[in-house]
Write a protein that binds this DNA or RNA. Structure first.
Lengths: 336, 336
DNA sequence: GCTGGCACTCGCTATACTCGAGTGCCAAAG
DNA sequence: CTTTGGCACTCGAGTATAGCGAGTGCCAGC
């Protein structure tokens, strides 16, 4: 039934706008349908039976269920463009001019996406572990302390302090660094992390082994610190989060980088923007919000961008924004 | 008057505990004073006239004003130890075992401090600009793209992408790096930022100048990214932030790293823990919260740790926690 | 100067009531 | 068989009123 879909779409749109239960009259008036309020009421009753709508109480209007939003998104939201062309080009511009350092780029991206949608934006940077080692530096800072710096071909820099039990000469460190660079340049960080690297004997060999352990730890840590986010304050403006108790589980989850990484990582498999509405999300904390996310980059390094907002989200806009940012990021990274 | 102070302290303590206006009877009962409720009422009336207390309405108990908290803090809070010895030693332990990388250390510190107090914790890492350059690396990533990496003697690593107008040979980059290292090793980042560095002529000289520009930019950016924080979700549990509207200005401020840096930076001048209560804070957004902060580190690199919570804050605990964390961090950094 | 007593204040809660948006259903029209 | 106007009904939100009680201010007596 085509009319039924139209009515559902109108109701969802109106609810997204007003955040209040929508009645039959409001739909007829604002979206001038070619039928009367009574007809709409009949359709609404059916849509409610079918599980697309929900009535807070008998004498109130209707509110979409997760299934209602889902139908709306599948029907119309993907097709519409929620951003003006001016906004689209502004995104491209701002991403280009900013940030020639990867962390900064991620942060800026999150900020832009959040401003664009007024929801929380989350950005996962590409996993460093798939990158190849470009150079390893070992810089002596004190007699028993050095800094190990790993530079990847993706332009990521990892570093970690290294403590020695006994005094270690700078030239030994230089020698070890040269040795490791010869052996490891071009190999994947993963391989180092999993110990698939030949070891050598001798004094320098021991030192080299120690450095390798540190590098392996680095890989693990780097993956843990891949999450940037922005715009949590924007959520406070949404009426569904007017009282803090509704917001708390979400905020707690957002602060847990590892959890966010797990929650989003399966977006990587999809080719287009993924929309997860309410309880479609794997975690209970996300049961009242929707996630719109997409992967970016290519096989040499993939990350994820997304926004998190109430299920009463402006889906057309959020989807356009995520798609736009994801494409721009892909281009940006592909330039290299 | 000594009794008056005792009564004020008792009231503040009780209000911190209960978050509700405190009456004369509650004070007498819970803190068994050697006088009657009527006497306490007289004192309370005086304390209100003097501006230390405030009565939400005629038939309610009293609530401390900013001045009331201030008197409480100056009188007693500094002396008491708000942490158990077990907690104190646990802080030391957790800071030691974690984080051999500076950013991670900052994040962990913020997390620990936040868990300890259940308020938002903010950590400013030491300004990189006071550090000395230990090594500069220029790593070619593509024919027209290289990564500039600056390693300081404080163990901080700064990096930034560099784009060339024309193809540039890796060996040129190596040469420039060697040249810059010879010239710059040991000099302050500030000096590079302000261009107090001799320039040379020739092809490599031009390249070197370009790299120097990037390094200068790096210094500026690094200072902007010095803020770590944790525990914003914890604030949602506080009754004063039950409705999001009270929280929003604060959250917005917290998300603005530069603003936080400005707000906290004058703590650097103080030698001990600084407590700023409500409107003592320089910014209106902080008018309803208190900041407890202290600097850490020594002249070679100073940062700031602090917590932000409602003015109805457990000051003895917050002060002890901040002091404890600050000392541990100082020790940790001093080891080098 | 301290204390017990007492009248008074005033926000909070509960109850009762009205109002109106919105529904469901029916009978008539298309 | 579908659509529509009409109409009785429902139920939450908003308003008015009353009672309760924690807490106060003040006073008279110790």
């Amino acid at each position: 039934m085509d009319r039924r879909r139209t009515i559902l779409a109108a109701l969802v749109e109106e609810y997204i706008r007003s955040a209040q239960p929508v009645g039959s009259r409001a739909i007829v008036e604002r979206y001038d349908l070619p039928c009367s309020a009574a007809t709409v009421r009949n359709e609404l009753a059916i849509l409610e039976e079918t599980g697309f709508l929900f009535q807070p109480h008998t004498s109130a209007g209707r509110v979409p269920t997760d299934a209602g939003y889902r139908a709306f998104v599948d029907d119309v939201a993907g097709g519409r463009t929620g951003l003006t062309t001016a906004e689209v080009s502004s995104v491209g511009q701002r991403l280009m001019e900013h940030a020639s350092e990867i962390d900064e780029l991620m942060r800026d991206t999150a900020a832009i996406l959040s401003r664009l949608t007024s929801y929380v934006a989350v950005v996962l940077s590409p996993a460093a572990s798939h990158a190849r080692i470009r150079k390893i530096d070992i810089v002596s800072l004190a007699s028993r302390r050095a800094l190990v710096v790993v530079i990847t071909d993706a332009g990521t820099v990892l570093d970690r302090m290294l403590e020695f039990d006994e005094e270690t000469a700078p030239q030994d460190l230089v020698a070890v660094a040269r040795m490791l660079n010869e052996t490891l340049e071009g190999s994947h960080l993963d391989d180092v992390g999993e110990g698939r690297v030949p070891s050598r004997a001798g004094r320098l060999g021991v030192l080299a082994a120690k450095v390798l352990t540190v590098v392996a730890e680095l890989v693990g840590e780097a993956d843990r610190e891949r999450v940037s986010q922005a715009g949590a304050a924007a959520l406070l403006a949404q009426p569904e989060f007017a009282e803090s108790s509704t917001l708390r589980p979400l905020m707690t989850l957002l602060e847990d980088g590892v959890a966010m990484l797990e929650t989003l990582s399966d977006v990587m498999r999809e080719r287009d923007v993924v929309v997860r509405i309410g309880h479609e999300n794997p975690r209970d904390e996300l049961g009242d919000v929707s996630v719109v996310a997409a992967s970016y980059g290519d096989t040499s390094g993939e990350g994820i961008v997304g926004v998190i907002g109430p299920t009463r989200m402006d889906y057309p806009r959020a989807i356009s924004a995520v798609r736009c940012v994801s494409r721009n990021l892909t281009d940006r990274l592909g330039e290299r």
